[in-house]
Computed example of a mutant assay.
Amino acid sequence: MTSIEIVAPGEDVGRDTVSRFDMQFQAGAFAALQILEGTGIDCVYCDFHDDFVVRRQVDGKTLYHFFQVKTKKKLNHQWSLAEIFALRKRGQQKDGASLKNVRASFGGKLLMHAVVFDEACYEATLLSNVHFDDDVVDAVEALRCQLPSCKASKFLSENFSAIFSLCDDDSGKASAFLSKLSLRPAVHYIGQEREAFANASRTAIYKYSEIDLDFYETERIANGLVDLAYRKSRTSLQGVAPADIAGRVGIELDDLLEILSISRGAYDALQRGVEEKVLKQASVIQRWLKHAGARDDMIEFASQQKVNWDLWLRNARHTYSPMDLSLLLDRIDGLYARWAQSGEGFAFLNTLLTALSAEPEIQAFEGLDRGMLFGAVSAVVVRRYSR
């Protein structure tokens, strides 16, 4: 009897298609990590209007960056003018069918976003795991500089209104529309396997938040990010109100915090504080207390008390002598060390905090109660684990 494994299938395009879609999800998930930086990017739409769209808030305005992801299995492939713009190097025609092909090309579809969204579209990018031919690079660079010098850029500039059927009011914006097109060739963070994505994600997470992941955390989070992009891309929008679309198909901060195992309550509490690197602090406190068996409400309480302690300490530096504060900080460090070495749970920590808060030397500091001292211990944990 013939075994299925020894007979080659008639075609194997399905496996390649799955790999290409996975790379699209990797690219979208990687872009979403920029949300952690907290510099305006607040949402990445998955498979909505394009492969993914990055939303940015700038001076009260909502702007969009559109991405198409085009990949090749053969890594030495270079995308040609014909593949990107449906343009010939020689003998390019200007008839209706030829212009229609340009509009339907990869580059044409991206440029259509610039036309439709106008000022709301700040960039439209073709992203790939391989390189682009020099003719494509030269054309896009010339268009971005609004100085069409090569044959392809001149053709697109001179025929832009006809290609996209612009009205007279928009025809004067052709150069501005064309300048929004960009390329990202041979990006290092997407691949047929997820190893490159995982490594790049670990680096990006550390860059944006200073959270340093171990091997197993990296693998778990990387897979979680790609799977999240997949789920968002597959979500149906039938009957969904426009105001609810971002929550359905967009990756937002809450989604990333869930994958990073950071509670939103702890994050929000720390964000009200006076120190930077909120995500790193939230991660440290979350890991510390989870390991000790704490519930989410204790984690949020610790985060809020850490903020209260930071604010108290900042003001105390203007009120109390450096010697008194130094002795106080030494006592708190000693308390944490004693508790950590004991291996006991929170009951023992509470006993230590209660005893410390009752000491006359501690009561001499105004407002320094047991809860505030718990925040001080949380600050010690953040400092030690952040080295």
Rank of each mutant, 00 (worst) to 15 (best):
R220F: 02
S128I: 06
R317L: 04
D255K: 02
V377Y: 02
Q281C: 00
V115A: 03
M23G: 04
V377G: 00
C46P: 06
A31F: 10
K109T: 06
K89V: 12
D369S: 08
L289A: 13
A174M: 01
L228R: 11
A152Q: 04
S209N: 04
D50S: 02
G265S: 14
A241W: 08
L63A: 07
M1V: 12
W339Q: 06
D214H: 06
C167I: 13
A152N: 07
F348I: 00
A82F: 10
N129Q: 03
N315L: 11
R234S: 04
H318T: 10
K151Y: 14
F365R: 08
F48Q: 14
A142C: 13
V380T: 13
S263D: 15
R194K: 09
A269F: 07
R234K: 08
G224T: 06
Y267D: 15
A200T: 05
V274I: 15
S157P: 01
F155K: 10
L225D: 05
E344P: 02
E37F: 12
E123F: 07
D22K: 12
A340N: 14
D255T: 06
I285W: 05
E217M: 03
F365L: 10
L111R: 10
E361G: 04
F177C: 02
K290D: 15
Y320W: 07
V284I: 11
S236A: 06
Y336K: 11
K151F: 11
Y189H: 14
F348M: 04
E276V: 10
D59P: 05
Q26A: 02
A222V: 07
F21P: 00
I262R: 07
A97I: 14
D214I: 09
D244G: 02
G239Y: 08
I84Y: 10
E195C: 06
G60H: 02
L126M: 11
L81K: 07
R314P: 10
S182F: 03
E219I: 09
R287H: 08
I205V: 15
L156M: 04
S378Y: 02
V116N: 12
V249I: 07
L81R: 10
V13L: 15
R184L: 12
N315P: 15
Y267V: 08
V307C: 05
A358F: 13
Y189S: 03
L289P: 00
D118L: 03
E193A: 12
W288I: 06
D212F: 08
A196H: 10
T351M: 04
S157G: 04
G334T: 04
G265E: 15
D135N: 12
A200G: 09
F160M: 08
D324Y: 14
L183V: 04
C46N: 12
I190F: 00
E83M: 01
L329C: 08
F164K: 04
G367L: 13
A204Q: 14
D135C: 05
K74N: 14
N159V: 14
L75F: 12
I262F: 05
V140T: 14
E11P: 07
N199K: 15
V240F: 07
L228V: 08
L228Q: 08
L253F: 01
R90E: 15
D133I: 07
W79K: 00
K173C: 05
K154D: 13
F25M: 05
R20S: 09
D50I: 00
G367S: 11
S326K: 01
Q238S: 13
D168K: 13
D133N: 09
L352Y: 08
F132S: 01
L335Y: 01
